[in-house]
Design a protein around this nucleic acid. Sequence first.
DNA 1: AACTGTTATGTTATAATATAACAGTTGGAG
DNA 2: CTCCAACTGTTATATTATAACATAACAGTT
Lengths: 175, 175
Amino acid sequence: MDSHNHNQCITKCLQDAHHIAVQAGKKLTPQRLQVLQILLNDHRAVGAYDILAIMQRKPLEDRTKPQPPTVYRALEFLLELGLIHKVESQNSYYACTIDKPENRQHVAQAFICNLCGIVEEKAALAGAQGLYKKADGFGFKIDRVIMECRGTCAVCQTEQRQTGQRANTATGVNI
Amino acid sequence: MDSHNHNQCITKCLQDAHHIAVQAGKKLTPQRLQVLQILLNDHRAVGAYDILAIMQRKPLEDRTKPQPPTVYRALEFLLELGLIHKVESQNSYYACTIDKPENRQHVAQAFICNLCGIVEEKAALAGAQGLYKKADGFGFKIDRVIMECRGTCAVCQTEQRQTGQRANTATGVNI
DNA sequence: AACTGTTATGTTATAATATAACAGTTGGAG
DNA sequence: CTCCAACTGTTATATTATAACATAACAGTT
C-alpha cells in the first residue's frame, strides 16, 4: 500500500512530540497523547467528532467519557506545538509528519484525497517565498499561510479505474 | 481609503456576472443577485448567517423572510459559477473581482486581514505551477487548490500603530 | 387551457462543528 | 504545606451547514 514503515513512523513522531513538548515547557498529557495517537494511526484527516467517538469507545483509566471541549483543547494544544495541522477546507485534522526540527520554518502544503481522506504533507520551500513577496508588494503582513490541494491520490485513481468503486470511507472520513 | 472606484467595480462585476450566468445557461435570480450584491458591497469576507441577517432585514418583494437554505443555495450557485469564493479558514465568502474571462484559468490567492476582514484577491499564475508539478511527482491529481494568507492589511497596520485600536469589526465579520 | 418536466424556492427540522462559562482537581514552585 | 497555574470535567449553547419534503414558477408541448 504505502512505501513507508508506519510503525516506525508513529514511533518517531511520538518521540519527537515528547521532545517538542518538553522544549516548549508544556506537557503531553495522556489525553493529548491519545488524540495525537489517533491522528498518527493513519495518514488520513480526521474530524473532531470522529476523534471524540474513538476516545469515548476507549476511555482512559479513571476517566469519564470525554466531551467535545476535551477534544478541542487537545487539538488546540497540538496545533500550537505544530504536531498536527487542520485541513481548513474539510474541518479535520492530521498529524504532521515533516521532520520536527524544521517544523516551524515551513509552510505546510497538504494534498488531500477526496476519496480516502489520506493527506500527503509537503513543505513549501520556494513556493511560499512568492507569496510573501507578493504580500510585501501591497503592504500585507502575513501571519499564516494555508495551502491545500484537494484531489485524488494515486491509489484511489488506480482503484477507480479497476473497480469503479470508492475507496474506504468506513472510518468516518468527511469528504 | 482604497485606490479603486468601488461603484465602478460593483457595476462591472454585476455586468460580468449576468454574462457568465447566461453563458452557463443559468439564471441570476433576484435572490442570487441579492447575495452577490451583499458580497460586492465591500471587499470583506462575510459569513453566511451575516448574509442571512441582511436579507432578512431587506426581504425582496413578495417574499417571506429567507431561511438558511436560501442563503446556502445562492452561495452554492455563485461558487459554481466562480462569481464568489469561500475563505475556508474562516467559513466566509467574498465576491471574486478578478477579470472574468480568465476566471476558471486561475488559482485564487486570498490575502485576508484578521482585523478588518478585507480580502485582497490575486491570481496565482506561476505560483500554482509548482503545486501541480509537485503533485504529479507522486501521482496526485489536483481538482482544486486553496491558497489563503491570513495576516494584517496595510491600512490596519497603520491604524494599529497610530491608535492601538482594532479596525472595524462592527459589521459582523468573524475573525 | 391542461399536462409534464425542470429549476427554483419555501419550510421545518436537524446535523456537524466549535466554544463559553464555570466548577473542580492536581501537581509543582516557593 | 500552601498557593497558583495548568489541566480537566461538565453543562449549555453558539455557529455553520444540510436533509427532507412541499410548493411554486416557468418552459415546452399538445
